Each structure stands twice: as structure tokens, then as C-alpha cells.
Measured scan of single mutants.
Amino acid sequence: MFKRLMMVALLVIAPLSAATAADQTNPYKLMDEAAQKTFDRLKNEQPQIRANPDYLRTIVDQELLPYVQVKYAGALVLGQYYKSATPAQREAYFAAFREYLKQAYGQALAMYHGQTYQIAPEQPLGDKTIVPIRVTIIDPNGRPPVRLDFQWRKNSQTGNWQAYDMIAEGVSMITTKQNEWGTLLRTKGIDGLTAQLKSISQQKITLEEKK
């Protein structure tokens, strides 16, 4: 169930391209415009997507990853294993993690069937560096609404905000991946996880038929 919630949630996290980005210092504006741009692209490019579902990787690479804190999220997933990894191991892992996100997020976007969304009203940021933004996803086919909290983090150097995690039903996506990959990290280390991520990233994206 959580895996499905995570995939549905990713439908609204794909941010804007650099040329049309919203105010990078306001995570609420980023979330709002990102959702609108993403849904528009999914709707307008269905012919290309249906002809070649792996085209979704391109959308992810162009529109999402430049505005997601990939390395920060990847380091959180590694936890204690990050500090013990060599620079070469980290570089290989982050490259594999990025390719994994292209496949995983692309597969999530393949679930698009006309969903709509509501974003919580903007709250004062103050001096906060981590801000959760509640998004409610509404399914046109009558499924119950899904309420999610996207975690946005302020870059201490640039002042810009980027998304790095999502919490559904009190469970963090980062925590879920830590639990899912924990045994592999304990037995085969970061190299074993890197190899698995490379394998997963090679899987073809498949479209979910409308139910």
C-alpha cells in the first residue's frame, strides 16, 4: 500500500525546468507551479508516452532531478554507511541512485490517469530550513484521497528550496528505503546496493492501464 502511495505522490513532485522555475526561495510556489507544469506535460505528451513509456525517463531527467536534492536524499538512505564509504564508492552510488530515480519516478508518472491535487495554504517560513507541505491527491475514479507531506529543505548556501522526502501515513519514503535496503547494505555494503540500483534502473517502464 505504501509503495502505491509513494508512486501516486511522485506525480506531483516533478519540479519546473530552470527556464520557467518559480521563486526558488518559496517552496509553496515551487510546489504549486511544479504540480501544474507536471500535470500539463503528462496530459499533453501522452502520444509520446504511450508510444514509448521510457520517454518518461527524459521527462524526469529534464523536469524533476535538477530540483530534487538527489545527493542529500541518497546520503540519508545510506545512513551510517555513508561515512564509511570511499569517495569513489559515493560517486558510483550517487550515479546509480540518480539512474534509479529516473526509472522509479518514471514508473510513478506512468500512473497518471487524470488525477488532480490540492496544496495546503502557504504558511510563514520564518527562519525554518525544513518545511512540510501537505498535498491532497484526488483520484477521478473514486479512490479515497491521498494526503501527503512533502519535505522541502532550504539550501544554506543559495537560499533555494528543494524537495527531498515524502511522508505518507506517518511513514517517510527515506525511512522506507532504509528499511528495504538495510539488509543488503549490511551483507554486501554500498557496492552491493550500487549494483542492485544499476540493475533496477535497467527495467523498462510500463504503463498502468486505467481501472
Score class of each variant (00 low, 15 high):
Met1Phe: 14
Phe2Arg: 09
Lys3Cys: 00
Lys3Ala: 03
Leu5Val: 08
Met6Ser: 13
Val8Met: 01
Val8Ser: 03
Ala9Glu: 15
Ala9Leu: 01
Ala9Asp: 00
Leu10His: 00
Leu10Val: 04
Leu10Thr: 15
Ile13Met: 00
Pro15Thr: 13
Pro15Val: 13
Leu16Gly: 01
Ser17Tyr: 14
Ser17Arg: 02
Ala18Arg: 03
Ala18His: 10
Ala19Glu: 04
Thr20Met: 14
Ala21Pro: 13
Ala21Tyr: 00
Ala21Thr: 07
Ala22Met: 14
Ala22Leu: 06
Ala22Tyr: 01
Asp23Thr: 02
Asp23Gly: 07
Gln24Val: 02
Gln24Tyr: 14
Thr25Ser: 09
Thr25Trp: 11
Thr25Val: 08
Thr25Pro: 05
Asn26Met: 00
Asn26Leu: 05
Pro27Gln: 09
Tyr28Asn: 15
Tyr28Gly: 12
Lys29Tyr: 09
Leu30Thr: 03
Met31Pro: 08
Asp32Tyr: 05
Asp32Val: 03
Ala34Gln: 15
Ala34Trp: 12
Ala34Val: 10
Ala35His: 04
Ala35Ser: 13
Ala35Pro: 09
Gln36His: 04
Gln36Ile: 14
Gln36Tyr: 00
Gln36Ala: 04
Gln36Arg: 06
Lys37Arg: 05
Thr38His: 13
Phe39Trp: 11
Asp40Thr: 15
Arg41Ala: 12
Arg41Pro: 07
Leu42Cys: 15
Asn44Ala: 08
Gln46Arg: 08
Gln46Asn: 06
Gln46Met: 00
Pro47His: 03
Gln48Arg: 06
Gln48Val: 09
Gln48Lys: 14
Ile49Pro: 04
Arg50Ser: 04
Asn52Ala: 04
Pro53Lys: 00
Tyr55Glu: 15
Tyr55Ile: 00
Leu56Ser: 07
Leu56Ala: 06
Leu56Thr: 03
Arg57Leu: 05
Thr58Leu: 14
Ile59Ala: 07
Val60Phe: 09
Gln62Lys: 05
Gln62Glu: 02
Gln62Ile: 13
Glu63Asn: 15
Leu64Met: 12
Leu64Asn: 13
Leu65Gln: 11
Pro66Gln: 05
Pro66Ala: 13
Tyr67Pro: 05
Val70Trp: 01
Val70Cys: 13
Val70Asn: 14
Val70Asp: 14
Lys71Leu: 11
Tyr72Thr: 07
Ala73Ile: 00
Ala73Asn: 13
Ala73Pro: 09
Gly74Arg: 07
Ala75Arg: 06
Ala75Ile: 02
Ala75Glu: 15
Leu76Ile: 14
Val77Leu: 13
Val77Phe: 11
Leu78Asp: 09
Leu78Ile: 04
Gly79Asp: 02
Gly79Thr: 08
Gly79Met: 14
Gly79Lys: 02
Gly79Trp: 12
Gln80Val: 09
Tyr81Cys: 13
Tyr82Asp: 12
Tyr82Phe: 07
Tyr82Trp: 01
Lys83Gly: 07
Ser84Cys: 01
Ser84Met: 11
Pro87Trp: 14
Ala88Gln: 00
Gln89Phe: 15
Gln89Tyr: 05
Gln89Ile: 07
Arg90Ala: 13
Arg90Tyr: 01
Arg90Asn: 14
Arg90Val: 12
Glu91His: 12
Glu91Asn: 01
Glu91Pro: 05
Ala92Gly: 04
Ala92Leu: 08
Ala92Ser: 01
Tyr93Trp: 15
Phe94Ile: 00
Ala95Cys: 03
Ala96Cys: 15
Phe97Asn: 00
Arg98Met: 03
Tyr100Trp: 05
Tyr100Leu: 01
Tyr100Cys: 03
Leu101Ile: 06
Leu101Tyr: 01
Leu101Pro: 06
Leu101Phe: 03
Leu101Asp: 15
Gln103Cys: 12
Gln103Ile: 09
Ala104Asp: 11
Ala104Trp: 10
Tyr105Asn: 01
Gly106Asp: 00
Gly106Arg: 10
Gln107Ser: 09
Gln107Ile: 02
Ala110Val: 05
Ala110Pro: 02
Met111Arg: 06
Met111Tyr: 00
Met111Glu: 01
His113Phe: 04
Gly114Met: 02
Tyr117Phe: 11
Tyr117Val: 09
Ala120Glu: 05
Pro121Arg: 02
Pro121Ala: 07
Glu122Asp: 14
Glu122Tyr: 11
Glu122Val: 11
Gln123His: 13
Gly126Ala: 15
Asp127Gly: 12
Lys128Val: 03
Thr129Trp: 05
Thr129Val: 12
Ile130Gly: 12
Ile130His: 10
Ile130Asp: 07
Ile130Val: 06
Val131Trp: 03
Pro132Asp: 15
Pro132Gly: 11
Ile133Ser: 03
Ile133Met: 12
Ile133Gln: 15
Ile133Trp: 12
Arg134Ser: 13
Arg134Ile: 00
Val135Thr: 11
Val135Gln: 12
Val135Arg: 08
Val135Tyr: 07
Thr136Gly: 05
Ile137Arg: 05
Ile137His: 15
Asp139Trp: 14
Asn141Val: 06
Arg143Gly: 07
Arg143Thr: 09
Pro144Tyr: 12
Pro144Arg: 03
Pro144Gly: 04
Pro144Val: 06
Pro145Thr: 04
Pro145Asn: 11
Pro145Ala: 03
Arg147Val: 03
Leu148Met: 07
Leu148Ser: 13
Asp149Glu: 04
Phe150Ile: 12
Gln151His: 04
Trp152Ser: 06
Arg153Pro: 10
Arg153Gly: 10
Asn155Ser: 07
Asn155Phe: 15
Asn155Val: 03
Ser156Cys: 15
Ser156Trp: 11
Gln157Cys: 05
Thr158Leu: 10
Thr158Trp: 11
Gly159Trp: 12
Trp161Ile: 01
Gln162Ile: 00
Gln162Ala: 02
Ala163Phe: 14
Ala163Tyr: 11
Tyr164Lys: 12
Tyr164Ser: 08
Asp165Tyr: 10
Asp165Glu: 02
Met166Cys: 15
Ile167Gly: 07
Ile167Trp: 01
Ala168Tyr: 11
Glu169Phe: 03
Glu169Gln: 14
Gly170Ile: 14
Val171Asp: 07
Val171Asn: 10
Val171Glu: 04
Ser172Asp: 00
Thr175Val: 08
Asn179Arg: 11
Asn179Tyr: 14
Asn179Phe: 15
Glu180Val: 14
Glu180Phe: 12
Gly182Tyr: 15
Gly182Ala: 09
Thr183Cys: 11
Leu184Gly: 06
Leu184Ala: 08
Leu184Ile: 12
Leu185Asp: 14
Leu185Gln: 10
Thr187Val: 05
Thr187Cys: 07
Thr187Ser: 09
Lys188Arg: 11
Lys188Met: 02
Gly189Arg: 06
Ile190Thr: 02
Leu193Cys: 04
Thr194Phe: 00
Thr194Cys: 03
Gln196Thr: 15
Leu197Glu: 11
Leu197Thr: 13
Leu197Cys: 00
Leu197Ile: 12
Ser199Met: 00
Ser199Arg: 11
Ser199Cys: 12
Ile200Glu: 11
Ile200Cys: 07
Ile200Met: 02
Ser201Val: 08
Ser201Lys: 08
Gln202Asn: 14
Gln202Ile: 13
Gln203His: 10
Lys204Tyr: 07
Lys204Cys: 15
Lys204Gln: 08
Ile205Tyr: 14
Thr206Tyr: 15
Thr206Asp: 04
Leu207Arg: 06
Glu209His: 04
Lys210Asn: 11
Lys210Ala: 14
Lys210Met: 04
Lys211Ala: 09
